[in-house]
Simulated assay, not measured.
Amino acid sequence: MQTARQAARQRRRRRRLTTGAAVAVTAAGLLVCLVTAMRPGSHDPDGATGSGPALGANAAAPAVSGGQATPSASPSSPESSPAGSSPGPSPTTAGPATPAAPGPSAKAATPKSGPGAAPSAGRIRPGTTYPGVATAYAAGDGNGACLFGPSDDLMIAAMNTADYESSKACGAYVRVRAASGASITVRITNECPLPCAPGQLDLSEQAFAKLADPKVGRIPITWSLLSPAVSDPISLRYKTGSSRYWCAIQVIGHRNPVARLEVRTATGWRSLPRTGYNHFLSADGTGCGGVLRVTDIHGEELTIEGIALSPDVVQRTRFQFAPH
């Protein structure tokens, strides 16, 4: 028979076995719970379904260092931002530019509108009304300081020196209004020197008679720039004495005042200076007899080819500036 001591020893051995089995069962249960919680699509404590995608075969896994996962730095993550700065959107790297669809080809006349978009002819601005006085002079055959030559149309005027501005006003069409309400359109073909004051127009006697009795001699007026209907294209003329070594070029019959004349060179366009006698001068012959580009005060450009280097010959083109 077992002694009391042996029975007690057996009971203690059975208790240890039972306790070990219970611990093993508990550990297994915890392991199952952890595996279940880590499966894709498992629920969080609030009941929301996990939305992060599982790592695929080609996905980069977090780097492991010292047995711990080290998150990779992202440009937008707070950990990778400089101290004290707030994270912003990650920069986008631009890919190859997509070629633009072909647009319309450039035209010979390219209008440019809007304040500041166009070169200015000088003091006279479109859309502005100027106060002044009108006087009268004997216009003769219609020629004047602008050197356009004789004309049968004597609805012309001489611009005061300040607004004439070294021939920049030449060829401009101006609407003149008297206090009586009468009005007339004239073309600037001449200069009125001092004592003509800024704003003053010296009208041909024929034009002055449309506004008031010529015996009055002087009347208050307002005037503004026009862009009238014209039937003829512009013309160009090389001054007498022009050659491939020196030339002066004149623009005639333009609807709007001319702001610039350029000649084409081997390196691009070259703008010619304007003289007081209403010609654009190439003192060294650059561009003489070549392709020309004429620009009005609205920024419209006319590129003109085929003008022969023939002095004192008026050569018609196929172009005219657009009305404004």
Results as ranks from 00 to 15, higher is better:
Ser242Ile: 06
Gly114Met: 07
Tyr245Ile: 00
Ala209Val: 12
Tyr164Arg: 04
Val186His: 09
Ala121Tyr: 00
Ala138Thr: 14
Thr275Asn: 15
Ala178Gly: 11
Arg218Thr: 09
Asn143Met: 01
Leu154Lys: 08
Ala139Val: 12
Pro228Arg: 09
Thr135Asp: 11
Thr185Ala: 13
Met38His: 15
Asp163Gly: 05
Pro89Arg: 07
Gln320Thr: 11
Pro78Ile: 03
Gly149Lys: 03
Cys288Ala: 13
Pro214Asp: 09
Pro87Leu: 08
Lys107Asn: 07
Cys288Glu: 00
Gly88His: 06
His279Leu: 15
Ala207Thr: 11
Gly140Pro: 04
Ala63Glu: 15
Thr98Phe: 00
Arg318Ile: 02
Tyr277Thr: 15
Gly306Tyr: 10
Gln315Trp: 04
Thr93His: 15
Ala172Gly: 01
Arg12Val: 12
Pro82Cys: 13
Pro75Ile: 11
Glu205Phe: 10
Ile234Glu: 05
Ile188Thr: 01
Pro257Asn: 00
Pro75Thr: 07
Ile188Cys: 00
Gly142Asp: 04
Leu55Gly: 03
Lys107Thr: 13
Glu165Leu: 13
Thr92Arg: 02
His324Val: 14
Thr93Val: 14
Pro91Val: 07
Gln206Met: 09
Ser42Asn: 08
His298Thr: 03
Gly41Phe: 01
Thr295Ile: 07
Ser113Glu: 01
Val32Leu: 10
Gly142Asn: 06
Leu34Phe: 07
Ala283Trp: 06
Pro111Ser: 09
Pro91Asn: 04
Arg16Met: 12
Tyr130Thr: 09
Ala109Arg: 12
Gly84His: 10
Ser76Cys: 10
Arg177Pro: 02
Val314His: 11
Ser80Tyr: 01
Ala69Met: 15
Gly67Val: 04
Arg125Gly: 08
Pro96Arg: 05
Arg316Asn: 14
Arg187Leu: 10
Gly289Tyr: 09
His254Asn: 15
Trp246Asp: 11
Arg14Asp: 15
Pro119Val: 00
Gly144Ser: 09
Arg11Lys: 15
Gly122Met: 10
Pro195Trp: 03
